[in-house]
Design a protein around this nucleic acid. Structure first.
Lengths: 266, 266
DNA sequence: CTGTTAGCGCTTTCAT
DNA sequence: ATGAAAGCGCTAACAG
């Protein structure tokens, strides 16, 4: 493994000069800099992340914690996060499972975006208390180092559901937690003689792609997953920079399908 | 940030004793060990990953590189990988995008599983040449530090497709790269008057959940994504341990739908 | 069984 | 403009 020490030796300069050159400092003459860079390239030098992290006390990586890796929802969400993070020179890693709980306290990442109920609120609060910066997407949590971006608002979210239920005149209504559960419900209903949209009414959440292809087409609550991620990322960057931020909510809307029938137009 | 130095001071021992105690070495008496552990806990000590990584020259983390985070395929694949990795005390991080290309050379991870064509084969070969261990899922690559797990085999894979095409007697057959493309193709065909399964025949790959809900039901190539991931993980662990491994293939099978009609039963 | 010590590779003051 | 040197937090000889 070639280190700056090797480069320094070969270039006949000190390691600090190499470090400066490698980091584009203007403390080194363009000539020296160019020479060092050339030697570094020739020697296939690659900086060592652990050493840099240890010294700088930051990794420029943020972690996203998910309950699992499956599901249609995460793709856009992560895209939204990544887009914002990369723009600010932060890298993104996605983690799941028990072992991932060490990442934040052991300082492998500079901050976290959490959509994973296996992190208890006490645990997160403890991290926050130690100075770690966290955005939660799946709960409310009050701490200077924690911010939240939740779904729904007075103009859309729960109100849409409430309106649906209040206007609904049928016999049985089912409000599924999300579209995936709705799909499971569809499957369970198949062959029972009960018809969705007539005998039983279903409404989902997330508006996954599959919802469009169900028969009858699923009514569901939609929102921009990418926006959700982007807002979360922006907030994390802000609190990492020591700026105060307000909690935010992502608008949600009702996408009408045929799995539920209302008396009036929704 | 509390370090082993702080613990050592408080416990009245040296930092090496603390380190030994923390790592469960039998070089420390149970009493000393217990006392140190208690103090560590009391002080909310958490080890610093960067320092450990720097010293030990390993991170016990492996990276999975994907072209993007979306899609139905990755969930099971990652589950398969994680299951095996965690069992051996390795952590898993999932990465995507340009910045993720630094992870391996900068030694933030001990090895990589690649399903991402934005990594050129030359790039991967270069990493392998420097000693990094890699499993590729999306190409063939011959190097002692690289292994591959590809889909398909003589009994299933390409042969299924070949058989489908050879037995097919219609006018137009479309072999989509994967189910997602097939879905796009269905949508493009909608309202054209052409009927899938009669005028145009389609076969996909991956057997994503959505395939079951398409009308007509999509014929597709199926395989165990979880197995794919598990085999890849197992191979990576083997080459990390310095053991020789053989390239492997994952069996694939044809799932017959109504999007293609064969003369004989497939 | 415990302590001393020498780094791992890097950044960054401070001196020259 | 460059170098010397300290030290980030940890592990692991080696010495006692």
């Amino acid at each position: 493994m070639v280190s700056i020490k090797d480069i320094a030796r070969k270039a006949g300069v000190s390691i600090s000069t190499v470090s400066y050159a490698l980091n584009g400092s203007d403390k080194v003459t363009p000539e020296t800099c160019a020479r060092i860079l050339a030697i570094a390239k020739e020697m296939n030098y690659v900086p060592n992340a652990a050493a840099r992290n240890l010294k700088k006390r930051e990794t420029r990586i943020i972690g996203v914690f998910l309950t699992d890796f499956s599901g249609d929802v995460y793709g856009d969400l992560l895209y939204g996060i990544k887009e914002i993070m990369n723009r600010k020179g932060y890298d993104l890693i996605v983690c799941s499972g028990k072992q991932s709980h060490r990442m934040l306290p052991e300082r492998m990442i500079d901050g976290a975006i959490v959509l994973d109920q296996t992190f208890s609120s006490e645990e997160l609060l403890q991290y926050a208390e130690r100075g770690h910066k966290i955005i939660v997407l799946d709960r409310e949590l009050n701490h200077p180092n924690v911010n939240q971006v939740l779904l729904g608002n007075k103009a859309g979210g729960e109100q849409a559901a409430e309106r649906v239920l209040s206007e609904f005149k049928g016999t049985t209504a089912v409000f599924c937690l999300n579209d995936e559960m709705a799909v499971g419900f569809y499957n369970r209903m198949a062959g029972t003689g009960l018809e969705i949209g007539r005998d039983i009414h279903v409404i989902g959440f997330d508006n996954i792609e599959l919802a469009h292809y169900l028969q009858p087409r699923l009514s569901t609550i939609d929102y921009s997953k990418r926006k959700w991620g982007a807002v979360a990322a922006g907030q994390l960057l802000d609190i990492l920079a020591g700026q105060p931020v307000e909690n935010e909510r992502i608008y949600v809307t009702l996408v009408k399908g045929d799995s539920i029938r209302l008396t009036r137009q929704a």
